[in-house]
Simulated scan of single mutants.
Amino acid sequence: MKVALLLSGGMDSLSLAWWKRPDLAFTLNYGQLAAQAEIAASRAICERLKIPHQVVEIDCRDLGSGDMAGRNADGLAPASDWWPYRNQMLVTLAAMKAISYGVTHLWLGTVKSDAFHRDGSSEFMSAISHLLSLQEGGMVVEAPAIELSTAELVRVSGIPSGFLAWAHSCHKADVPCGNCRGCNKYFEVFEEVGYDLDRPG
């Protein structure tokens, strides 16, 4: 078994990397506005944990919508950060790269609250895993933290606050905007877990 993590540089995937220590990690620059900050956060945690890290670059911004693509979300959007079929795209692109490394299991940093979007649900995870298993390589897609909230994941992972602070959650820019859903989550989780941003541990 060889495990790769789809590492976005956000709180969930950084905590999952700290907790589970995958064999390698992939970060995708698919045209999202915060790509460089996400790559930097991912690279930093991988260097700390000595996890081999690969960056995959392919510009899909013309296919995106919402905060991450720098435009208004499409009409069907349940939230301002909705990018249609994003997780399906990310899993496919990561798997296309991962198969050349002999990866058998691809992990996603999906948590309980991600079920707000259909591609963050348990049903989606089962379906996308089944789809990949039908193809060459028989890769399995798993979300080890899907039954946990982000705060619960942070606690169970044991990630120190100083390393969690490296996470980049902003949807709109490389420098946190402070008012998008990603930035709000970042501050809410620090408060819920009881970590002090001014005194990282």
Rank of each mutant, 00 (worst) to 15 (best):
A98S: 07
V56H: 06
I159G: 13
L14D: 01
L7Q: 10
Q135M: 09
R199L: 10
S65L: 03
E152V: 05
L33Q: 09
E152I: 06
G178L: 12
K2R: 15
K172Q: 12
M11E: 03
D196E: 03
A167M: 02
V140P: 02
M11G: 01
R199V: 13
M139H: 00
T27W: 09
F163N: 11
E57R: 13
D67N: 08
A165K: 15
E57V: 15
V103P: 00
N87H: 08
L90I: 09
K112M: 10
V156T: 15
V91F: 07
N179I: 04
C170V: 03
V111W: 03
W19T: 05
F190M: 07
Y30C: 08
G120S: 02
I99N: 03
A173H: 14
S13E: 04
N72P: 05
V156R: 11
S126T: 09
L132K: 04
A115V: 07
H105P: 09
A115R: 14
D174I: 00
W107N: 04
A69I: 00
R118H: 13
P52A: 14
M125Y: 10
A34N: 08
Q54L: 11
D196A: 02
L153A: 02
L16N: 07
D196C: 05
S169Y: 06
L5D: 01
G194E: 06
D81I: 03
I159S: 09
A165Y: 11
A173R: 13
N179D: 13
D12V: 07
D196W: 04
H105T: 15
W18T: 06
C46S: 05
G120W: 06
S8F: 12
R118E: 11
E191Q: 09
P176W: 00
V156G: 03
V154A: 11
E38N: 07
R86E: 02
E136A: 12
R43W: 06
V154L: 11
I128S: 02
V56P: 01
V175Y: 00
L106K: 11
G178H: 15
G182C: 14
A151C: 14
G75I: 07
G64E: 01
G137A: 12
G120D: 05
A98C: 02
S161A: 04
A25R: 14
G138R: 14
E147S: 12
F116T: 00
V56I: 14
F190S: 02
G137M: 08
A73Q: 06
G162Q: 12
F26N: 01
G194T: 11
G31Y: 08
N29I: 06
D12T: 04
C177K: 04
K185V: 02
H130C: 04
I146L: 15
V175C: 00
I39A: 01
L16Q: 10
V193M: 11
S133Y: 12
A40Q: 10
A25E: 09
